[in-house]
């Protein structure tokens, strides 16, 4: 869930982007409120300065568990449009989103509109997978829906400007898709396996022909002095997949690689990926940046 090396000080602050003065109105009156920071970036790219975009989820936060203050909740109820990921992702703010919907605020739950995939295994089997953003083609559809709803719901907006920005961003998403396909096409077919404990890669795998092999990564205390038994399940998965790298959310990726080599005789690189949240700064501060960074990590690691 968390990529190491990124400071995640979760101040209660709202990630407020392009905050226009709104003295005299309730908080966020007439704004576009977006729950997750990934969709917040997409909405911001489309809207520019044409309307206020308020992102509820702080940089680096966990979309499942972040919660909002009473003031933020009021912002949601005053919004002209609420954009959420949906499909059960944002549990901490679902009540506020539901309350806004009941109060008549238009709510776009993007995930439900982009042909969601179902989990194939585990205790969530059969449920819709909410992590659609790892597929840029679905994100194009999401961006189109957001632009459409913005034009429909936000009063007095410069429609031509928004349409122009939306078209430009769609081109960028299409280019991202091309880049990803090109990078992944260089990976030999028999190496297109993602051995990982990241649980967001289902859509990416489906789009670009990867197999996802879920793996349990030994914990930090186990890695301090591991036995062969501690590493057995992971080492077996790696051997069977025959991959040179795994993608693990681990506090100690280098240590994990070292003990896999020493204890289990398995020689792999261990890389983390960005998963569910943009960061305040750096390569994953935007959706496009996050996807390019992950693409480079996967392609470089799996291409001989």
């Amino acid at each position: 869930m968390v990529r190491r090396g990124i400071a995640l000080v979760l101040a209660a602050a709202l990630g407020t982007v392009g905050l226009a003065g709104c003295a005299g109105d309730g908080p966020g009156e007439g704004s576009i409120v977006v729950t997750t920071n990934i969709l917040g970036d997409v909405a911001q790219q489309i809207v520019g300065d044409e309307a206020e975009v308020v992102v509820l989820m702080p940089d680096g936060a966990d979309p499942h568990s972040f919660e909002i203050s009473a003031r933020d909740a009021a912002t949601v109820e005053n919004a002209a449009l609420v954009v959420s990921n949906g499909l059960g992702l944002e549990e901490g703010v679902q009540n506020s989103v539901d309350a806004a919907a009941e109060a008549g605020v238009p709510v776009l739950a993007v995930g439900e509109e982009v042909d969601p995939l179902e989990y194939q295994e585990g205790s969530s089997r059969g449920q819709a997978d909410p992590h659609f953003w790892t597929d840029p083609e679905r994100m194009r559809e999401a961006a189109r829906l957001i632009a459409e709803q913005v034009l429909e719901q936000v009063p007095d907006i410069d429609a031509a400007a928004v349409q122009a920005r939306a078209a430009e961003y769609d081109d960028e998403l299409a280019a991202l898709d091309d880049e990803m396909r090109e990078a992944f096409d260089r990976i030999p077919t028999d190496q297109r396996t993602l051995v990982t404990n990241h649980h967001v890669l289902g859509y990416l795998a489906d789009r670009y022909g990867f197999e996802v092999l879920g793996a349990v990564i030994p914990s930090g205390t186990t890695l301090a002095s591991p036995s062969a038994a501690d590493l057995d399940a992971l080492a077996t998965a790696i051997r069977e997949a025959g991959v040179p790298a795994i993608f693990a959310d681990s506090s100690h990726p280098d240590r994990l690689a070292q003990v896999l080599a020493e204890t289990a005789g398995v020689d792999v690189e261990v890389h983390s990926l960005y998963s569910e949240s943009l960061t305040a700064d750096g390569e994953a501060a935007t959706y496009l940046g996050m996807m390019r960074a992950n693409t480079a990590t996967i392609a470089t690691a799996l291409t001989p």
């Binding site: 000080v9 919660e67 909002i68 203050s69 909740a73 930090g220 506090s251």
Partner: peptide, 19 residues
Amino acid sequence: DPPSGHGHGAVSGASEEAE
């Protein structure tokens, strides 16, 4: 404003970790 109640796992001043 303070969060509207911690319930579970809501955090200020803490980081989420991989393990």
